[in-house]
Amino acid sequence: MSAAEPLTGGFAAPAPDAARAFRAILEAMAQPGRIVRLAGAAAPAPAGPALAAALLTLADGTTPVHLAGDHDTPALRAWLRFHTGAPLMPRAGAAFAVGSWAALLPLSDYAAGTAEYPDRSATLIVALDRLEPAGARLTGPGIAAEARLSLPETAAFRANAARFPLGVDFLFVCGDRLAALPRSIRVEAA
């Protein structure tokens, strides 16, 4: 199976594969800082297996996706359209935005929800070069005492958390690994 082909790389058994991928993402979101593995999907570069699985699990024709920077390639566009039917959208209207941290900034470009509907907010899927349980200190719901995660910075996440219940939520992917940071989490520099 070549990951560069738009028509390949989907789940072999869509219902159970998506169920397993979702449970891993749910575990990551419910326990921020925890690193989970996602397998079973492949997308054209630069997307790794965890990113591919997350998009297959969460995106569809009802969720506009924004591909940022070097993730905005014809091959990845074609793959996304074929496998999920998700429409491509500029940042402001996106339910999911995908890219490297630098390409995704600034966070103020994305929907952060409204006071009455804070859930109407974007989820950013950030491709990182390294993802380890070390670095920034995380505290808040989902974390017994504290967790550590190799975030690309802290200021933007602190500003995002300060807007709670508004804000965006993050999935970080690196290869077949994924971690999450919801807006509810307090972030401090290591």
Partner: peptide, 23 residues
């Protein structure tokens, strides 16, 4: 699967905003 995706997205937002009722 489409229904499950819709519910799964709502669940992730619910977890991200503890105690808030996601439609």
């Amino acid at each position: 699967e489409q229904t499950k995706r819709m519910i799964r997205r709502a669940l992730l937002k619910a977890v991200a905003i503890p105690g808030y009722q996601v439609p």
